[in-house]
Design a protein around this nucleic acid. Structure first.
Lengths: 339, 339
DNA sequence: TTGAAAGCGGTACCAG
DNA sequence: CTGGTACCGCTTTCAA
């Protein structure tokens, strides 16, 4: 490693090896036709001088940066960091690096993050777009930058997506409860409607009910919430007030499910003996709960990162990867039981 | 936003504005002496053409990339992602971006991550170095790259550090237990000795005992573990077997504390009525535990990210920031109680 | 097989 | 106050 201010360049090597910079470049990249003698000599000298290529300069001429932008919300949410971690692993194997963007930062928005990445000439972007930014993304895609949307997607936009079947997840969760004999099932939904994915969880819930011939007054059994812990708590309290005969609650997120359980316990119900609770996402602490490891719908998080990167790589290479819809899975732990 | 393959450069603007590229550069960077007429004209045209600067090219000539490398272990650990998130926020405000590196990736090591960042010419690095890599970091620092070590540090190396006083943390935790009347206190330590920080937690533990005139047979009350949940569980089981009269356990990490609590519950002890448990770190799910929100030592995580970035920025600017030692704090929740 | 030179998109120096 | 031009470090086209 040479001094930061005074780095070895291919010119230095060229001088030492008595060849042109071009030959050095060829040797280093193992390209072109060079006599193996000169090639080996160059390589030896490069090694001796501890040459480190300047990726910037290379990127400038190649119009490639070997960086990809990853813009996900809630960087502090273990679910997304799991994904980033997986993307990173795949990246490294291919010589890519990750430029990080947090779409829920307080300073700059998702749009700001993406614009910065574009200015940095990242080779592609993996993001979890806010469905309300249709115009922005539409324009962005017009520039031709490879982009994969994961977990959420914007309808009608020209970008491939990697999604998980949330309708199926909602169905699985509800079906599990029905199989345990529950019929009066509360549902904690999201109070906004722009995230189609979250809405789909509710559709799955309803489909399971219909399929099993259960008819619930959804006005009473569905409770909107902001899906935070506190939101889940409040929603559960209201549900239980309205319907004291509820024996199970399906929450649209694990976070809210935590609040649901607390609320149940606080009003003197035992979980799962008196009331069963199912979450959604399978974030870390769902399984790490000490006495209440959460039954939940698991996102296939081990696949998401790797697949997203593969799709992006394929896009970058000029191919047209297909959109993918992954299947979620029911993970039965300790918060659900026979009615 | 123009097409990816066909971007607007300052030359294009120069042509349209009938000025030299240099003037465009000056106008765009709000520098130098330009007649405000030309400046405004240039700016107007740039806006019309939706000019986006090529940060790569700028970096090449300025020898600055406005990127910093952040290399932390356990990207999936909420504690570190909190820090990254904070660093990112500060970065954005200053026009920096983050190049991500995970030192516990399975493919490339901490060293590999750092080398990549150096090749990318990041302006500086924030990392949590593995103390066993003295040689590597020593050499790295010889190149003059600005580097701040956080949370852990390598002794005798020429790099400023941002640490938290782990000895004090260990003391606080133990003192809390002593004040509650506990005297037979188990301690779950780390089974390796290269992390000085973790060792210091033990020193704080011992200092608190000494200060309060308690003498424990440390051979019996200290139990090494790998500090995972399972490790904590096993350690607690052994501690309780050896010392059935234990009424409190201090665990070197929250993760292990989770295992400790599970073990206690499994052998029929109530927490905190029969046995008090203190963790260390205050990771997310310490507070998110449903019936056992963990009493723990909180790292001042809100400060770490921002301070680390400030230190690095100062280093990059050529100053010599002082190393900082932050104070941890005791957070009393529900897993500790009067003896 | 190899060298010279141009150029990627900016910035900075030096004239004018 | 402004324009020409060299240059950052690398790749690539074109000749030799």
């Amino acid at each position: 490693m040479q001094n930061t201010q005074n780095r070895i360049t291919i010119k230095d090597i060229a001088k030492r090896a008595n060849v042109s910079p071009r030959s050095v470049s060829l040797a280093l990249n193992n390209e072109g036709r060079l006599s193996s003698a000169t090639r080996e000599n160059i390589l030896k000298i490069a090694k001796e001088m501890d040459y480190q290529p300047n990726i910037l300069a290379r990127g400038l001429v190649n119009q490639k940066t070997y960086m990809i932008g990853v813009v996900l919300p809630y960087l502090t949410n273990s679910f997304f960091t799991n994904i980033i971690s997986d993307i990173e692993e795949r990246c490294l194997a291919d010589g890519y690096d990750i430029l990080l963007g947090n779409s829920s930062s307080t300073i700059k928005s998702e749009k700001g993050s993406i614009e910065r990445m574009v200015n940095r000439r990242v080779d592609g972007i993996i993001c979890c777009p806010d469905p309300r930014y249709f115009e922005f993304y539409n324009k962005l895609l017009g520039t031709g930058i490879p982009l994969i949307q994961i977990m959420t997607h914007i309808k009608g936009i020209d970008a491939k997506s990697l999604l998980v079947d949330d309708e199926e997840g909602g169905f699985l969760a509800t079906n599990h409860l029905l199989e345990l004999g529950h019929e009066k099932i509360g549902f904690v939904s999201f109070h906004e409607d722009y995230y189609e994915e979250i809405q789909l969880r509710g559709q799955g819930f309803r489909r399971a009910l219909v399929k099993n011939g259960i008819s619930l007054d959804l006005e009473r059994f569905e409770m909107p919430s902001d899906l935070t812990i506190k939101g889940g708590y409040d929603a559960a309290v209201k549900l239980l007030q309205k319907n004291p005969d509820i024996t199970a609650i399906f929450s649209s997120t694990d976070l809210a499910a935590l609040g649901v359980i607390e609320a149940c316990l606080d009003v003197g119900k035992r979980v799962p003996e008196d009331i069963s609770v199912v979450g959604y996402d399978d974030i870390d602490f769902a399984s790490l709960q000490i006495r209440y490891p959460l039954t939940t719908i698991a996102q296939p998080k081990d696949q998401i990162g790797a697949l997203a990167f593969e799709m992006l790589k394929s896009l970058i290479a000029g191919n047209q990867p297909e959109s993918i819809l992954l299947k979620p899975e029911l993970v039965v732990r300790k918060t659900t039981g026979q009615k």
